[in-house]
């Protein structure tokens, strides 16, 4: 009994300490004097790594999810004779929910895990210590560019996901199932509101981007520098990010659309 209490206590203390360390890391890496000449090339490289290289998976997933939405929507709506509303259903589900959430989950799996593993390996091979000993702050050199790159990339990827998804939906609904394209697009245009739907979706993706990349970077930086430690850190990144995204999605949705 006492042992169990002790374990719970130690676990809680460890988690609190880790949260403190992650906050400290965030402050140390974000609030640094700007040095565009030094930072810009590093940021561009990371944007390529976490953003551009995630494009294929985002594109393909967006396309298939849009196509499935179009097909499912059609089979349900056709019973009520309202198959013209497929465009509206596809666009709203994508812009409000699926694009931010699925992109964030895919991003955590593709880019988040890679960032954790990379930083964890840099720690294990003493590269981070080496930066410190050369007199270069790894927070600025390694952590900050990755944080900013994730924060910038995810909203952009989310937008691409939504656009490709809508295109996928139109491919199925209009080109395959023969819904009149005029009503498909007009319904969509009439029902999707820029500020309540599109902007809220972007706000979600900004929050998810921040949380996912923060978790990824911190797990790498705080990893036990052994192969087992890095593998655990990578797993934690994907699990914690996914849970955080799904939990935050509910909270944000309640805040944004709760009063309806």
């Amino acid at each position: 009994m006492i042992d169990q209490l002790q374990r719970i206590g130690r676990g809680t203390l460890d988690r609190l300490a880790a949260t403190g360390r992650s906050g400290q890391m965030l402050l140390q890496s974000l609030f640094v004097p700007p040095a565009p000449k030094e930072m810009l090339p590093l940021l561009i490289k990371q944007l390529h790594f976490v953003g551009v290289l995630s494009l294929v998976i985002i594109f393909v997933s967006g396309l298939f999810i849009g196509m499935v939405l179009g097909l499912q929507g059609y089979t349900i709506l056709v019973d009520y004779g309202s198959e013209q509303a497929v465009g509206q259903m596809v666009a709203l589900s994508l812009v409000r929910e699926l694009a931010p959430v699925v992109t964030a989950l895919l991003f955590a799996g593709r880019a988040g895990s890679a960032v954790t593993a990379e930083i964890g390996l840099m720690k294990a091979t003493e590269q981070l210590a080496s930066y410190e000993m050369i007199g270069v702050d790894p927070m600025r050199r390694i952590i900050a560019p990755r944080l900013w790159a994730g924060f910038i990339s995810l909203p952009l990827l989310t937008m691409i996901f939504a656009v490709v998804g809508i295109w996928g939906g139109s491919l199925v609904a209009v080109d395959w199932l023969g819904i009149y394209s005029g009503s498909f697009w007009a319904n969509m245009q009439a029902s999707v509101d820029f500020s309540t739907d599109v902007l809220n979706g972007i706000v979600k993706s900004l929050v998810f981007g921040f949380v996912v990349i923060w978790i990824a970077v911190f797990q790498g930086y705080d990893a036990v520098p052994t192969s087992e430690g890095i593998s655990k850190a990578t797993t934690r990144t994907v699990v914690y990010s996914s849970l955080a995204v799904l939990g935050l999605d509910f909270i944000l949705t309640a805040m944004m659309f709760g009063e309806i």
């Binding site: 840099m122 590269q127 210590a129 080496s130 410190e132 000993m133 050369i134 270069v136």
Partner: peptide, 23 residues
């Protein structure tokens, strides 16, 4: 403080066991 420590480290060299070259 952190700033002076980094200044001081510029006067130190360290050869790590793994080499720790930036990959």
């Amino acid at each position: 403080n952190r700033k002076w420590l980094f200044h001081l480290r510029a006067r130190m060299g360290m050869l790590f066991q793994s080499g720790a070259l930036f990959t």
